[in-house]
Amino acid sequence: MAQAEMRTISSPAVRKRRKTLLQVLKDNSGFLFVLPAVIIFLVFGLYTVIYSIVLSFFRWNGFGKFSILPFACDPPACQFAGLDNFAQFLYKEPTLSQFFWQALEHNAIMAVFVTLGTIVVALPLAIALNRAARGQAAYRIIIMLPMVTAGIAIYYVWTFIYQPDGLLNSVLGTLGLNLLQAKQGWLGQADRALFSLIIVMIWGAVPMATILYLAGLQTIDRELYEAAKMDGASAWRLLWNITWPLLFPVTVVIVITSINSVLQGYEMVYLMTYGGPAAHTEVVGLQIFKYGFGDQRQLGMASAMSWVLFALVFVVALLNMRIFRSQTEA
């Protein structure tokens, strides 16, 4: 109809363009819903992202001026460094690079064990919670509590728990597991400190994961289980063949957020061990924090390290999504 109309009009070209433009705008009007978010990002996000990328190619001590719009980098406080910032901690400077790779190794260990630990604790907890008809609300609230209270004060509480005469060793003693006690304190022993931090991280991540799993469990159709039971499947089979695959999307969300928070987090390490003993809990996030805010004042180096970390997190997240997709398609 529109086409027919157009042919009869004297200047079809103008008319046509206006009409389709209008149509295009109308078809895309949904964009208006996203516009506020886009504007906020353009104003408060984009500049900072670009700035941080550009900064990673400069050496800057944080004083004097370094800005992008208008561009300013006044020596000697600010100097162009090219790729030197990256080279320094990746391979060039022996001490820096050694500490960086060591920290990254700790990060990798943490990412793996925190993620596994969170899942291994949260899933049974969610299943138990799902079974507990009576008192579910109360248990749920208590189990979720660390989400709200976790913070500086709580990290300090954990350092007290980890003392040689602290709760953990006492409990192990009462259970007759004296062999497992950390006589030099859980955060003081080279072979236990990282592990002890991982426990606290799991403790902090379990509430959210449990709730996610619980929510997932509640969407699973009970009839699936009934049918499988009829066929004589064991509880273990039910878990492995029904629960786990159906909860897989939840697991992916947990894995991604867990890896992201482990790789970017530093507050806990900062407050509990400051990277010690003898650098056994040094992590990349803490190094970035020290370069950016510490007395060395190398903001360019901090930026460079952040972006290397970003690339890693991004790749890992993508891999996860890829695995997830292939799993769900299969």
Binding site: Y51, G292, S306, W307, F314
Partner: peptide
């Protein structure tokens, strides 16, 4: 979501 937070403080303040 994965953009690191530490180094954006200075540009934010300039902004």
């Amino acid at each position: 979501m994965f953009v690191p937070g530490v180094t954006v403080l200075v540009p934010l303040v300039q902004l």
